[in-house]
Design a binder for these strands. Structure first.
Lengths: 259, 259
DNA sequence: GAGTGGTCTAGACCACTTT
DNA sequence: AAGTGGTCTAGACCACTCT
């Protein structure tokens, strides 16, 4: 018996995965606890074993559970992982951690893309972009400087927004833009005089720098951003395993530009 | 027809995945190129479609390819990701990037674990650990300070090694220890006087701090390490997507320990 | 409309952990 | 010995992209 999906409804394995995640969040299964077996869940959800395995695979990829042949799956400890939206959008993230996120526009300009920007956004010579600089705050205190380049098509939409009030990410999603993949490069830099003034720290303070390239489902670049966080305010957490690794370590030869 | 595995040989889908990765590395499929369809590969490898999908899933999890319904899978650009061993072991990593890795032991001691160390390694009150501090170098230049706590059982093995010469990771693997999962927390800190002396920079220089907890397949903690990299020498790269997210952003309230 | 990936089923055998 | 997850097969229907 195959049950058809209602239009727009998530697949069965996604619903099962979401339900398991919710039960783990709620503490029904605590870190270290064993989860129900595949066959047990197959019965409970009237699904095949393959579908249950697909649901578990989603949790495994997110690092929420571990799994070994012969033993039941076990809930992993550690900090809860955030969903893609909370990670991608400062506004979402701020609200998720219970703070009041805001922004202050420092500059917005349409200009010709630099060579680096053309590379990152995959644009032809002479292409124009929008470049936005904002200070982002939590509960009124500066936490991060955001310097983002948008391709012309996206930037035109952004330029029309109320940037002090709206979430760019949310508005772009409403306007039909889908953020699918992102690549983040993280290192540490010294605050420049400019950084220091905007963040209210002394020049030379250690900042956590995140350079991010985000693409849509077809692989087209949607933004290229360099964000600088106060080093003592923000950290990033990554999980990986022998099976699955999305993390790399990179070395910059002294004197070379850092990618 | 079911073909049995030879003992110790990797599964079919792993071999297919490895072969595809090799072809991508070799440039047979360049970033932006479409890959063969599932049915085509099923024929080529005399495998079922499910097995081919399993191989593709491995590449997808590593962020090497993207995939959308209706269109063929596409090779993703960006830096090549390193395998778990290269990420986990400084020695492996150094050799992989063509440099000569080395280490200099600053201190090794067996002592009672602090509260923080007990939490991270999941040890009872009063448990003892081994604590190792090393400076790690590439081509003779200091790049990182490593401060690692090992549970007694592991530390006893480490203490017997030639720490200036051997790779701890390699030796522990040879001795039957399997590193399965790791959780990394990354932020930026100011170099202490001690850090500065060991790394040959001025105090206050920005350092990239990686705190790492590594576990074996059963979830038991194998090490808890705090590594500090020169900010202009090393960066970390992470890939994620709406489907699959192993990255989180964390906020530390001012004054709180960045635990 | 043809091709492709996404979801789901039902069943099989095996390696490993647990009791 | 029983239970559990890992691998693999063969087939089905569907949503979507491409030309």
């Amino acid at each position: 018996m195959v049950i058809k999906h209602e239009k727009g409804s998530p697949s069965l394995y996604r619903r099962i995965a979401d339900e398991l995640k919710a039960e783990i969040s709620a503490g029904t299964y605590a870190p270290g606890d064993a989860l129900p077996s595949e066959s047990e869940l197959a019965q409970r959800y009237d699904a095949s074993r393959g579908t249950i395995r697909q649901a578990f695979a989603a949790l495994r990829t997110d690092g929420i559970i571990s799994s070994r042949r012969g033993a039941r799956r076990v809930v992993q400890g550690g900090p809860r992982l955030q969903d893609f939206a909370a990670l991608h959008s400062f506004s979402h993230w701020g609200r998720a951690i219970g703070a009041k996120p805001s922004g202050r526009v420092v500059g917005l300009a349409r200009r010709e893309a630099t060579g680096d920007e053309r590379d990152r956004l995959n644009l032809p010579e002479g292409a124009r972009i929008y470049h936005l600089t904002r200070v982002r705050l939590l509960d009124g205190r500066p936490v991060m400087i955001e310097r983002t380049a948008y391709p012309d098509r996206i930037g035109a939409l952004v330029a029309g927004m109320d940037l002090d009030r709206e979430s760019i990410t949310d508005r772009l999603e409403e306007l039909g833009t889908t953020f699918a993949d992102a690549e983040h490069t993280i290192d540490a830099v010294r605050a420049t005089a400019d950084d220091a003034r905007l963040l209210g720290v002394r020049a030379g303070a250690p900042l956590l720098r995140e350079r991010r390239r985000t693409t849509d489902p077809s692989g087209a670049a949607l933004e290229w951003s360099e964000d600088r966080y106060l080093g003592d305010q923000v950290a990033f957490t990554v999980r990986n395993s022998a099976d699955r690794n999305t993390l790399s370590r990179w070395h910059s030869a002294p004197g070379a530009t850092t990618g």
